[in-house]
Amino acid sequence: MKERVDSVFLSQLADDFLEIAKKFNDYRFEKISQQVISQVTFVEMGKEANRLMDTAREMKLLSTLIVEEEAAEALNQLQSINLEIKQTIATLKNVQTAFDLIGTLGELAMAMVEKKPSAIAEKIRALMDLLSEKTD
């Protein structure tokens, strides 16, 4: 007997249950056609076969639910790699903002050196617009 019940084991067990149910069904169909068993026995055997199949169904379902736990570590790892990829993409997108910011700051510095109040106000406005775009 397997020491630890895992998803594969449960799934295979379900397959075995189904195989037994199939053999059971084959047997009762064969016997009813030969009129060896009564209609009542045929129906009762059918109910037993259905019970086996219901159990197999539950095992298949349980096997899938167990997979969540078995794959949890790999799932977490891949999700953190996905997050890292997203962050790298966001960083690369931000580089353009940095270049725009450098340009606007340079223009602001020039306006300040040249002591042009209207130009300074305009450049500060442009800078604020750029920063608000970034934070949107």
């Binding site: 799934s11 189904l18 149910a21 199949m53 169904r57 298949k60 379902l61 096997s63």
Partner: peptide, 12 residues
């Protein structure tokens, strides 16, 4: 194995 396994049970 499992989704198709359920289908096989249904087929039976």
């Amino acid at each position: 194995q499992n989704l198709l396994g359920l289908l096989e049970i249904q087929q039976e």
